[in-house]
Design a protein around this nucleic acid. Structure first.
Lengths: 255, 255
DNA sequence: CGAACAGTTGATTCCGTTCAAATCTGGTGG
DNA sequence: CCACCAGATTTGAACGGAATCAACTGTTCG
């Protein structure tokens, strides 16, 4: 009933090109892509499915494995097709930041830098769809809709990241956690899931490093929200939102 | 020798369309634009100067005046041509965040939302060049280079905002301030200024709300950096960087 | 069974906040 | 010109909340 266990620092990534070869894996090309409606590819006409497939590489990752390391040269961009990843950055003395979590449909590649500014690690077993930056650029010049879609998404990501600034700079631990839970809920809903249950695939450490707190404080905050009846937790990775109203009030979110 | 005094909350913005009318103001159209090389417009061919001018509106702001309020409908995008502005957001109980500062050449308009998520206020007397979002969209469809430039800039802004996350989540007051000073220095340099002097047009309160600290802590951090010989300050708005190396070490920046 | 690790809970410490006050500056009006 | 005021900045003292240190529980996996 629980999720996969994390294994600390897996070896390295072995990108797996896919083009043209007789695929042993699932038969679903872009046409049957489960996250197409969530992904940037949706900006392209369906007839382009073949072209896309030819350019795309499929990358499976086991929990804990590293897709890219901070400092590596950026050569590809990705769309998450399943699982969950984290974007992390370390200071010399070990202080850690989780700059964000990446879920199915999310695009990885909005950066103006030539090298990764964060490592990208799989939180759970995941898979991604990869394009070389070159291919992506040429796709963009042929399909302005794609570039427009990318800009639109970059803007939304910027909105979200700016919202996180408020959380980190001025909100209390309880408020940050409420905010985080509602955010995760929103993402889950956008993926078509319903109900009041939020799934948190990541360990408490990741939540702490995402919210700028310690694990202990995060744990105490969960306990507090539970005691106050805002949430219920059968298992640390499954949280039931019991009182959306008060959660939203804590997070100071519109709804 | 000092900068303009801030006046708290000026009245409101009175946008000033400019197209076609016999301009009383400075004769410099886009051709003579002082920030053209810094602005997104640089992506357009020079022959387009006339077209741009016809679409652009000039907006002068006095220190403290508000360009846009959180919650207002977004109808225009802007390029800062002079001065300095801040992007702010308030919580119900008055807690304040400065999500960023906007300097000459900066583009204001990277957001996926239909309404402003932050208020934009002038820190000092400023001026901006305004385009309706409609005009901007049509310019983009005619000139893919412009859309590419916008995407590129949105990505860079995302990089910078993500870097701020680390500052807010995990760095000490001293490190945050060092980081901020080097950042401001970098922006000043990119505008063509040299020397070791950084100009901080904003009051300490803004710096505090930007770094997620109190004014007192910011002030103490300045004092500390001064005592340790990393900086010198003749006046609160002018800071001389005395020891870039140690500042960079504090900020954990590459250089 | 025992080791390793995630998560929770408790006790104590410490850093940044809060509260308070002094200093300095520029601007105003007598 | 100078006294005075308002706001910005700095400095000091005390407090408090999250970090730190530590211990315990529960689960997974060898």
């Amino acid at each position: 009933m629980s999720l996969r266990v994390l294994r600390p620092n897996g070896p390295t990534l072995v990108p797996t090109p896919r083009a043209g070869s007789g695929a042993v894996a699932e038969d679903t090309g872009c046409g049957g892509c489960l996250v197409r409606h969530l992904a940037v590819c949706a900006a392209l006409p369906v007839e382009q499915a073949r072209t896309l497939e030819a350019l795309a590489g499929d990358i499976p990752l086991r929990a804990g494995e590293v897709l890219a390391r901070e400092g590596d040269a950026r050569r590809e961009v990705f769309t998450v097709t399943s699982g969950a990843l984290r974007r992390i950055r370390l200071l010399a003395d070990g202080r850690r930041l989780v700059a964000g979590f990446l879920m199915p449909g999310d695009f990885i590649g909005f950066s103006g830098a030539s090298h990764y500014r964060h490592s990208i690690e799989a939180v759970t077993d995941s898979s991604l769809c990869a394009f070389s930056m070159q291919d992506m650029r040429s796709l963009c010049s042929r399909h302005p809709e794609l570039e427009r879609e990318l800009l639109e998404r970059a803007c939304v990501e910027l909105d979200n990241t700016r919202a996180n600034l408020m959380s980190l700079a001025r909100m209390t631990p309880l408020e940050r956690l409420a905010s985080f839970l509602l955010d995760m809920d929103g993402r889950r809903r956008r993926q078509g899931h319903g109900g009041d249950e939020v799934i948190l695939p990541m360990p408490r450490t990741d939540i702490a490093d995402y919210l700028g707190l310690t694990v202990e404080t995060v744990s105490r905050s969960f306990t507090r929200l539970r005691q106050d009846g805002l949430i219920a937790t059968e298992d640390p990775h499954r949280v039931a939102l019991k009182d959306r109203k008060r959660l939203a009030a804590l997070a100071e979110m519109p709804a």
